[in-house]
Amino acid sequence: MTSMFEQAVGAQKEEELDRLRAEIEQLKLTQSNGSGEPSFIQIPVSQIMALRLPDNLKQPRRYFDPEKLAKLRDSIQKHGQVLEPILVRRAADGLYETISGERRWRCCIELKIDFIPAMVVEMIDETALEVALIAHLLSEEISAIEETDSILSLLKLRLGQTFEEVKQFLIAIKNYQSRGDGAELVEANGDKVAIIEAVLEEFGLKVSSFVSNRLPLLNLNPQIIEAVRSGEISPTSATLINRTPEQHQAALIEFSKTATKTQLQEKIDHLKHVEQSQRINPRDVVDNSGIIMPATQPQSDDDNSGIIMTAVPVQERIYTRLKSIRRRKSLLNDQRVQEHLAQVDSVLEKIEAIAEEKGISLS
Rank of each mutant, 00 (worst) to 15 (best):
M1H: 08
A8V: 02
G10T: 09
E14V: 12
E16I: 08
L17A: 11
D18M: 07
Q26M: 09
L27T: 11
T30L: 08
N33T: 07
N33L: 06
G34N: 07
S35C: 03
P38V: 09
S39Q: 06
S39M: 04
I43T: 10
V45A: 03
I48Y: 01
M49Y: 00
R52I: 04
D55L: 13
Q59P: 05
P60I: 06
Y63H: 15
P66F: 08
K68H: 10
D74I: 04
I76C: 04
Q77Y: 01
Q77I: 00
K78W: 02
H79C: 01
G80R: 06
Q81R: 14
A91F: 00
D93H: 08
G94M: 04
E97H: 13
I99L: 03
R103Y: 00
R104D: 03
W105F: 14
C107H: 01
E110Q: 14
L111Q: 02
I113L: 15
M119V: 15
M119N: 09
M119H: 11
E122N: 14
M123G: 05
D125Y: 11
L129T: 05
L137F: 03
E141T: 14
S143A: 11
I145T: 12
T148V: 03
T148L: 02
D149S: 08
L152Q: 12
L157H: 03
Q161A: 11
E164S: 12
E164Q: 10
E165A: 15
F169S: 01
I173S: 03
I173H: 03
Y176A: 10
R179W: 04
G182M: 06
N189Y: 00
N189L: 05
V193D: 02
E197S: 15
L200Y: 01
L200Q: 04
E201S: 15
K206P: 00
V207K: 01
V207A: 04
S208V: 13
N213L: 10
N213F: 07
N213I: 02
R214I: 02
L217E: 07
P222H: 04
I224A: 03
I224C: 08
E226R: 15
E232M: 12
I233L: 12
P235I: 08
T239P: 00
H248G: 05
I253S: 09
E254D: 13
S256Y: 00
Q265M: 11
E266G: 09
K267P: 01
K267D: 01
K267N: 07
I268C: 09
H270V: 01
H270I: 02
E275D: 14
S277D: 13
S277E: 06
Q278T: 12
I280N: 09
P282W: 06
R283G: 11
S289N: 14
G290N: 10
I292F: 07
M293I: 15
P294S: 10
Q297G: 03
P298A: 13
S300F: 07
D303A: 13
N304V: 06
M309N: 15
T310D: 05
V312L: 15
P313T: 08
T320G: 10
S330I: 09
L332K: 11
D334G: 04
D334A: 10
Q338R: 15
A342Y: 03
Q343G: 07
E352A: 15
E352R: 14
A353C: 00
I354G: 02
E357D: 10
K358F: 07
L362N: 08
